[in-house]
Computed example of a mutant assay.
Amino acid sequence: MIQVTQYVKPLDGWSRPHLMLCDDGNFYVIKLLSNPQGVKVLVNEFICSQLAKQLNLPIPEGKILFISKRVINSHPTLKSVLQEGPHFGSRFIPSGIHQPTCLDLARCTNIEQAADMIVFDYWLDNNDRHVWRPAEQNLIVTGGSEPKIWMIDQANVFNGPAWSIESLIKKMNIFNAYWGTLYQRFVPFIDGPNPFRNSVSKFQSLTKGELFNVVFNIPAEWNVSEQELTILVNYMEHRRKVMYYMIQSVHVHFPIWHVHYLKHGGIG
């Protein structure tokens, strides 16, 4: 397990993340076991980072990171926040644009993955990325000659980090058609007769066994029960199978797709 070697500074965010340097030489944005939103923030982030590896999603690489007593003792003022054990960290992306303009998005070499982002959020019921915030978004754009769009902050998948067995069962068949200014900005880049066909096919290629492998690698120290993990898999598997149905509700926001949809009766 990668070890934290140096505390750097606190960062903004509801989960009060921190920037730290680790023994692999990389900086990570770390969400702590003691974060105010609860340990399931770490669970949600870990699951999304592992799915990203399999689906080639633009999510920063995520790792389980260990904070030792040595690091804690070297920062006495943080002893009430830091605790020894495994936490979750996302690779820090320096110089990211948190309020990208339409021009910034147009320059991104992976802008076509906006379709993947929308399908991903609908699949896992991520209830806040569609919102365009005055301060920042749940995405960043890197600069340079080949700018890229990155999805950050996956804490609100499963309709938020307060999920339970009961809430997952209840939400399994509820497909909220979140739509907002951020998604609307993606429309010109991905609209077409069937803009989500490839994304849906990619997600539907996952197997239930692969989903089990993801969730059952969650550290025991995060205290997620086997029953909760099983329900998570069943939730993802069920919603994965009905993605075509889930995504059809947003066709009205896509001029080309809308015409095609009315003419041909769907996206399948």
Rank of each mutant, 00 (worst) to 15 (best):
V119G: 01
D116T: 14
S74M: 09
N56I: 06
V81D: 07
I64W: 00
L42V: 03
C108Q: 13
I118M: 15
I93K: 12
H98G: 03
H98F: 11
A114K: 06
Q99A: 04
F92L: 09
H98L: 06
R107V: 02
S80R: 14
I72T: 11
S49C: 12
S34T: 15
I30P: 00
N44M: 11
I47W: 05
Q54W: 03
I118L: 15
S74I: 00
I72E: 09
F46T: 02
V81I: 15
H75K: 01
I111C: 12
G85I: 08
V41S: 01
I47R: 13
L78S: 05
I30L: 13
L42A: 09
T77W: 02
N35G: 06
G38E: 11
N110S: 06
Q99P: 00
I93E: 04
N73L: 04
P86D: 02
Q113V: 03
L57E: 13
Q37I: 07
I67D: 07
M117C: 05
E45G: 07
S80P: 03
L42G: 06
E61I: 10
R91Y: 02
N44L: 06
Q83R: 01
L103A: 01
V41D: 08
L33N: 15
S90W: 05
L32P: 03
S74W: 00
S68A: 11
Y28K: 07
L78K: 05
I111V: 15
T109L: 11
L82Q: 05
Q83G: 01
